[in-house]
Design a protein around this nucleic acid. Structure first.
Lengths: 107, 107
DNA sequence: CTTATATACCTTGACAGGCGAGGTATATTG
DNA sequence: CAATATACCTCGCCTGTCAAGGTATATAAG
């Protein structure tokens, strides 16, 4: 069973930033990684992913650059900024708080 | 600091059902209880609450009746149905799964 | 050579839940 | 008599998700 988008909502940006903390990556790969890490339970749809990228870049949390692939389709890489790292820590703390609160409420 | 609505989104119905598992209650009280239980970190806004009530009733998860207050404003009470209890178990399980998945993703 | 599949990118427009703002009515307190 | 608390409700905007559609490159199968 997969996780509904309403539950995931609000975490996409944090999830993306978490990924970029480990290493620069590109959309397609990030998408695959997330599914793999969660045994296909979490899937960020492409449209969702790209709109999140746009917001994150707008906010200055990520930067992008084109990879220099010799073969295959071009890749647009994303890397997290210092501001993004700080934002991630906030997201993370918010998640811990929300988790505790919801655990409190769902008996 | 309060929990963003995007994180809470998707849990309002579960939170309400959880409350009604304990006892019948009414909108205003449920609202207060939730805030109290979470030290004012979670607040379901009234408009949010009432639209959730509508959905829950539509789905057959709750039933409503008017209280017989002798004094003060009238109260519309809500009670959870058998179907609602089953639905809650599903919500609860979804939450546990989502929690695990997100914990996996946010390093 | 043609088709299918995988990789990789992107946009548009509809949809649904959250909620600010506004409204009603009753009771109590200063 | 005004303010505050209790208690209900609706309208319409906002925002994140995503189905559906599009582009281009490489490889494997038939």
């Amino acid at each position: 069973m997969s996780i509904t988008s309403d539950i995931l909502r609000g975490h996409t940006e944090a999830i993306i930033l978490a990924h970029l903390l480990e290493q620069d990556s590109y959309g397609y790969q990030i998408n695959k990684d997330i599914m793999k890490k969660t045994d296909n339970r979490c899937e960020l749809k492409e449209a969702t992913l790209y709109s999140a990228f746009r917001r994150l870049e707008q906010a200055g949390y990520i930067r992008t650059y084109w990879g220099d692939e010799k073969v295959g389709a071009r890749r647009r890489y994303y890397s997290i900024t210092e501001e993004g790292r700080r934002a991630y820590q906030v997201y993370k703390r918010e998640w811990e708080e929300a988790k505790a609160a919801i655990d409190q409420l769902l008996i």
